[in-house]
Amino acid sequence: MFVSKSMARKVITVTPEDGILTAREKMKTHQIRHLPVVDPEDRLVGIVTDRDIRSAMPSIVLEDYDSRKEREKLAKIRVHEIMTRNPVTVLPTHTLQDVLMLIQSTRVGALPVVDEDGRIKGIIGVRDLIRAFINVLGIGEPGTLLCILVEDKIGTMKRIVDAVTEEQISIGSILVARSWEEGKRAVFPYLLTQNVSRVKQKFTDLGFTLLDPLEWYLDQLPPDGR
């Protein structure tokens, strides 16, 4: 779960003295939206995003009559003029959970990863988190998802896992979703089989409620809508 395992190690960077057109080209070529800005010792001094560059561009279309003049003006703008200094960073020893919480609170799309001396080690972004979660959801492997509404109390999960084990079914993942209903949890066992009729019957016999798939919720907006 450490950042060092999930981050991109080959980091595309720019220097503070690079022009913003160079930065824009690098983003296009590598299909990325964040470029860490580093000094000659690879120490992070800032970050520049596609949005920073777009804001620096004049609103007129570049193909206009004085495009050459505009282009020359743009070519003179240096990265350090538009970059964000002291960006939010993480260490390789931070965890994916740290990054999730940070991305949610800071609303940035990617975080540079630096060592204790501030040297760039990698970058981790929303796409890396998505990959990690596709992995833990297990949805890259064939299987069947069920959803059980249970009382939130100790021992429930054991009974679920026991029932699955008795059917000799492998488990791809088990997710637990917070319910807005007091004292309830929605448990999602992802079972690596096509063959779920018997285990479903077993859950029902054990007194569990199998939720109608159309009422499943991995996530819901909190009541205040934020």
């Binding site: 949805i139 492997e141 064939p142 299987g143 069947t144 998802l145 089989t193 096509q194 798939p213």
Partner: peptide, 8 residues
């Protein structure tokens, strides 16, 4: 596929 085998 989010509800049934094989997920594709």
């Amino acid at each position: 596929p989010s509800f049934a085998y094989p997920g594709t």
